[in-house]
Design a protein around this nucleic acid. Structure first.
Lengths: 220, 220
DNA sequence: CAGAGCTTGTGCACAAAGTCACAAGGCCGG
DNA sequence: CCGGCCTTGTGACTTTGTGCACAAGCTCTG
């Protein structure tokens, strides 16, 4: 396989996990071949886009036939780097942190929970699903034991930057931030942000601007 | 300026809530004026982009001075349609659903919890934070009582489409889907998707591809 | 009241992403 | 084993988003 793969566009990267999810589903249904058209339908995108996206991974399709589900699945996992599990450390044992820790969707898809840590002494020692909340001081140790680890920030926004710094110091190189705050990290650390209220506000925007005549908002 | 406001680009819409969050913070600190430069720094983007984004809302800045925080805050809320609260109905009282229902970040930012419903008889009647889980059959009633409502899908992927259909039938016009599945809704319904595992996979990709020399992952 | 000093608002050029349309090429039936 | 049928892979083009650079315009000082 050509190792020097073209750089994959960000927009494509963001879609790959979706394709992966669909391929897993198809494989589970014992479907062994899929066309870009079908894949596009399942992913809710354009067929040409699917083909272009997949072509960044290499030439894995067969003209006139489609893509071999198992083979594509393998290549996709390879590309995404999810051939092995990535343990996750959740920082913050509040409502969100506990939910994320319990959320089966993580471990099911290759992201087992390594630990939950919290700065609040009162929370340390309490149970969260299968694990017990550990003190922040255990962070470095946990990270070392499971490297490579993904850090998940589930704290109030005010301490998000502090937590991020501690994660980086502990050796975490990928961080998913759920706190509503901007955090900055060194260049070589991967960082993504998910802000739940922000998503609702985006919905609110489109709802308020959708076809002013039919809005349910402000009924007489 | 022109009342029939130009259509606001999607990329800009996605950034507005972030500006809103920052403006709220600034207002809380009794800061009454902010420059595009400062705002850009706080939002982690380019200053020119901030000015262009804000200019879509109208001409609210003062050259040589900057933007009046309170006034911009008001206009921003207006633009986003968050001048009033948007009640939220969470469907699914599993781990994720319960967490979202308890998550203070929603109600704090104008999205109070109207109800939690679940199809599982065993969960109906149990407490989730301040509310009690209600049966799916109450959905239409809840929606009618709080219109307009945002529906949040926090169920397994397998039933996401079914739930979406029920939400639409009950009169919900905006849906936030946390289930790992594609759901389709009529044109006039706003829909957004958040897939937590998907975010981790994106991180995994960038981690696997970041500067091969420094990867902690064991790549040959 | 003029001029210096900022900061906005925007035209323009460029980059990224998305779409279309079609040639290339594998598969199968006759 | 050849010709028709399919579906991929991709070049060309369109649309959307980004960033620079600078004129416009407000404020304050002398």
């Amino acid at each position: 396989m050509d190792v020097h793969a073209r750089r994959i566009p960000d927009a494509t990267v963001a879609r790959l996990p979706e394709y992966l999810r669909i391929l897993v589903e198809l494989a589970g249904q014992r479907i062994d071949t899929v066309s870009s058209e079908r894949l596009a339908e399942l992913a809710g995108v354009n067929a040409a886009k699917v083909r272009k996206d997949l072509s960044y991974l290499g030439t894995y399709g067969t003209r006139g036939v489609g893509y071999d589900v198992d083979y594509l699945l393998f290549q996709m996992r390879q590309a995404l780097g999810v051939t092995q599990d990535w343990p996750v450390v959740v920082v913050g044992a509040g409502n969100l942190g506990r939910a994320l820790a319990n959320y089966a969707g993580f471990s099911d898809r290759g992201f087992p929970l390594a630990a939950v840590v919290d700065a609040d002494e009162a929370k340390v020692g309490t149970a969260v699903g299968d694990v017990t909340v550990r003190p922040m001081s255990d962070l470095a140790e946990v990270v070392k034991a499971h490297q490579p680890v993904i850090g998940v920030i589930a704290t109030p926004g005010a301490v998000a930057q502090l937590v991020a710094d501690q994660l980086v110091a502990a050796g975490v190189t990928a961080i998913l931030n759920f706190a509503p705050a901007l955090v900055s990290v060194p260049q070589n650390i991967s960082l993504r942000k998910v802000d739940l209220a922000l998503e609702l506000q985006i919905l609110s925007f489109y709802q308020s601007h959708r076809d002013p005549g039919t809005t349910t908002r402000g009924w007489p």
